[in-house]
Design a protein around this nucleic acid. Structure first.
Lengths: 194, 194
DNA sequence: GTCTATAGCCAGATAGAC
DNA sequence: GTCTATCTGGCTATAGAC
């Protein structure tokens, strides 16, 4: 059932964003959805599969943002990148960005074996890579930087602890926090002042 | 016994850097040190206490770097900050930076109750805060940025996934990776070009 | 303070009826 | 596909001898 699985993934997404993979329990997922744990396992083979499916959904959202930015005309590549970074930071600040530990080996294995996930990840990386190279040609990203470095720097905004800390301090508006984090990111990639 | 506890904390530090708090097991710590698990609990009351002690040791190292930088004369505040960021990134890249999940509640509670930890954290934050304000006065950090934002951005370099990813790609030297990450961080804080 | 042995708990996963 | 009930294993922490 498609609707049921969507509800499951929403719960997984929320729990991953809230507690992370290691502290998320399948019992909690089942409780949040309102079904028995055994029923969950009829839809997804393992806890790792749950996380993988949530990550696929996230990457699909990212591709949506990328597609949307691609249709804008008369826009510099750096502005498309900025829009994607802003989206990522906004989602994270809203507590809706699932976070996976890069350390967990069973999870890594499952993710690397998940064709849908890998394919999407490659797609996203290639699209962003193009924008980065173009932005370097226009001088908006330091041409001395390998595009790989810029790509990882963009990806890292999805798990940046800074927005969360600033939000927890309670002294700033969410929109303001997003602007700071986005501009710090892009200014960092722009390179030294001349 | 002081030597024994130092060996324990070294093992904890290594395991925290390698697997993180949730995946680190007390059994592994005991095995690494070469003693029985029950003996471990004679030195530290809980797994959380182990992590807290490791974090205190890390903050002491950070204070050491700060003190050392304070003695340098004729050096701009931004250069002192740069040295600290470089130290953090280097430690992290060497796989010696313990990482704690900001989500785990039992751990957070124990850390916040640990006076030695909190005091050190405040000390470090105040010292770095001074440098940041001075760097803003000299135009090396965007004066429009609350110093708090810059402080968190510096702290975040200790758990930045970018150096690890770049190292895993195997295409770059560690020194080169450190320089990229450090300069991206400082350029980001410098603000927009004029 | 060190050990062996074990208590107690909890989480992932499964069995089997409906 | 959903449920209740249970298995299984691993983990934190402790008991108790030496």
């Amino acid at each position: 059932m498609r609707v049921r699985e969507d509800a499951i993934l929403s719960a997984v997404n929320r729990l991953l964003a809230d507690k992370g993979f290691d502290l998320m329990t399948v019992d909690q997922v089942a409780a949040d959805v309102g079904i028995a744990k055994a029923s969950l396992y009829k839809h997804f083979a393992s806890k790792e599969a749950l996380a993988a499916a949530a990550m696929v959904r996230l990457l699909q959202c990212a591709m949506g943002v990328i597609q949307e930015q691609s249709t804008r005309s008369g826009v510099r590549p750096i502005q498309r990148l900025e829009a994607l970074v802003r989206w990522a930071v906004t989602v994270q600040l809203a507590g809706e960005m699932p976070s996976l530990p890069s350390q967990n080996s069973s999870l890594r294995a499952e993710l690397l074996a998940h064709k849908g996930y890998i394919d999407l990840l490659i797609q996203v990386s290639e699209r962003l890579g193009e924008w980065i190279v173009q932005a370097q040609a226009e001088g908006d990203i330091d041409p001395a930087l390998p595009s790989e470095v810029a790509l990882y720097s963009v990806y890292a905004r999805a798990c940046d602890p800074v927005p969360g800390f600033l939000k927890a301090s309670g002294q700033h508006e969410a929109e303001q926090i997003v602007e700071w984090v986005v501009s710090i990111c892009l200014n960092g990639l722009r390179g030294p002042q001349r």
